[in-house]
Structures are given as C-alpha cells and as structure tokens.
C-alpha cells in the first residue's frame, strides 16, 4: 500500500486537508464551493471539460489565475474563486 500523503491548503480562507495528487478543482468541488464563477451575464458556472480546454474552472491560486483542473494541490496553497465579473462595471 503506497503511503497516503496529504496537502493542507486554504480555500477562501478555510484550511482543508486533501490527499496529494488531487487537483485544485477537485478540492474546490469536494468543499462544495459552487458556482466556481459567474459568466459575463451573471450565470452560475462550473467546470466542464476537466482536461484543460474549456477554461470554465479558472480560479486564483496564489495570486495567479489558472485552470484548476490542470493544477495539483500543494501544501500552503491559497485558492480564491474568481470574483463576479461584469461587463458593465
């Protein structure tokens, strides 16, 4: 049985412990943080493709906007969902 290592990260200010090898996307989903973002017209959105094509799972990880499905969890990471984006603002 391989050793099961864990990563401790902060999701919107809350510390969570997840298995290493998890994606940031899965950490967000398992924490129930939905919607991941709001569309230009304010619709709720979540991840679609799971493999880096659609960009729906974008979030801010340690200050950089990334596709969370391509981003592995690391100890000490800080993750924020994108704020509400609105074309008029």
């Amino acid at each position: 049985m391989p050793e099961r290592t864990l990563a401790v990260l902060t999701l919107e200010g809350v510390r969570v412990t997840v298995p290493a090898g998890t994606t940031v996307l899965a950490a967000l989903q398992n924490a129930g943080l939905s919607p991941l973002r709001r569309s230009l017209s304010g619709e709720a959105r979540g991840a679609l493709c799971g493999m880096g094509s659609c960009s729906e799972c974008r979030a801010v990880v340690d200050g950089l906007t990334v596709r969370t499905c391509l981003t592995p969890v690391h100890d000490g990471q800080s993750v924020q969902r994108l704020g509400i984006v609105n074309r008029e603002v």
């Binding site: 991840a47 679609l48 493709c49 799971g50 493999m51 499905c69």
Partner: peptide, 16 residues
C-alpha cells in the same frame, strides 16, 4: 454547474 463532459467527469473523478 453539474453539467460536465462525459470524459470530463471521468477526468474530474480521477483527479479526486
């Protein structure tokens, strides 16, 4: 949210 790709959900599940 909740409508995902078929391969997409498989990938997400494998991702944790």
């Amino acid at each position: 949210p909740g409508v995902v790709g078929a391969g997409g959900l498989q990938a997400m599940s494998k991702g944790g």
